[in-house]
């Protein structure tokens, strides 16, 4: 589904991603862990097509296409979804209106019929139940004045509505209390299938107790320095990132 080869990317003069290799197949859950500033969000942004980040070398294919040929919205239409670490607020635009616009745009480009208000509301209500989203929340302006937890839940709620092929969850767990964490994890597990894939970016292995990854990668200083299975996440949690730092600095130049 996704093939990242020797990806290098920078902001301005600063190189942030320094040769990333990653392959994700349908039906898989990958976790990417790593200390603050290691480049996790940058990788997510490059995948989603944020222009600020300049790709200097390497390639990415997504469902057979060269990802770099696609605009951010084309990537979304094709099934790429990013749950943002910091979702933006859009004053005056109701969450419902925003979601309807998004869903219908995506549907249109996937060759599906646009939903009228009634069918959309029906779909929305179903997903609201799943994510324990309150009606008052979807009446409010998008993310405006939402608590940290509400914002994160709203991201997964959108994921549910947009039915992506590849979902990247950037620190969706941070700022969630245990109940909210469970709701989010349940939601994600519910959406998981053999046709789609999920990349979970996180600091902690807490979320991984609920959404069990097939692979765990450690991103450090712009490179994936270690890959393994879910046990690696537990090991990381126990030993901390200093362990990786020592190991990496031991091997590297």
């Amino acid at each position: 589904m996704l093939k990242v080869k020797n990806l290098r990317a920078s902001v301005g003069d600063k190189e942030i991603l320094r040769g990333i290799n990653l392959e994700v197949n349908a039906g898989e859950v990958h976790a990417i862990m790593g200390p603050n500033g290691s480049g996790k969000s940058t990788l997510a942004s490059v995948l989603a097509g944020r222009e600020e980040y300049k790709v200097t070398s390497g390639s990415i294919t997504f469902l057979g296409d060269n990802l770099f040929d696609l605009s951010p919205e084309e990537r979304a239409w094709k099934g790429l979804f990013l749950a943002f670490q910091y979702p933006v607020e859009i004053p005056g635009v109701s969450t419902t209106n925003f979601l309807k616009t998004a869903v219908n745009n995506v549907r249109e480009h996937r060759g599906l019929k646009k939903l009228d208000a009634v069918s959309f509301l029906k779909l929305m209500r179903e997903q609201m139940k799943l994510m324990d989203i309150d009606q008052s929340l979807v009446n409010r302006s998008l993310n405006e004045g939402f608590s940290g937890g509400e914002k994160k839940r709203n991201e997964i709620f959108q994921m549910a509505l947009l039915d992506p092929k590849l979902a990247i969850l950037d620190e969706t767990d941070s700022g969630l209390d245990i109940d909210a964490l469970k709701i989010v994890a349940n939601g994600v597990n519910h959406l998981k299938s053999s046709n789609n894939a999920i990349i979970i970016v996180t600091h902690y292995q807490r979320l991984l107790e609920y959404i069990v990854p097939d692979f765990v990668h450690v991103l450090f200083n712009g490179q994936i320095v270690k890959s393994g299975t879910k046990e690696l996440a537990i090991e990381l949690e126990e030993k901390g990132y200093d362990w990786i730092r020592e190991e990496v600095e031991g091997i590297s130049i």
Partner: peptide, 14 residues
């Protein structure tokens, strides 16, 4: 903001 536009783009909105 560019971040608002990008957020919309990411959701499939041109």
């Amino acid at each position: 903001g560019e971040d608002q536009l990008f957020y919309c783009n990411q959701r499939g909105i041109s």
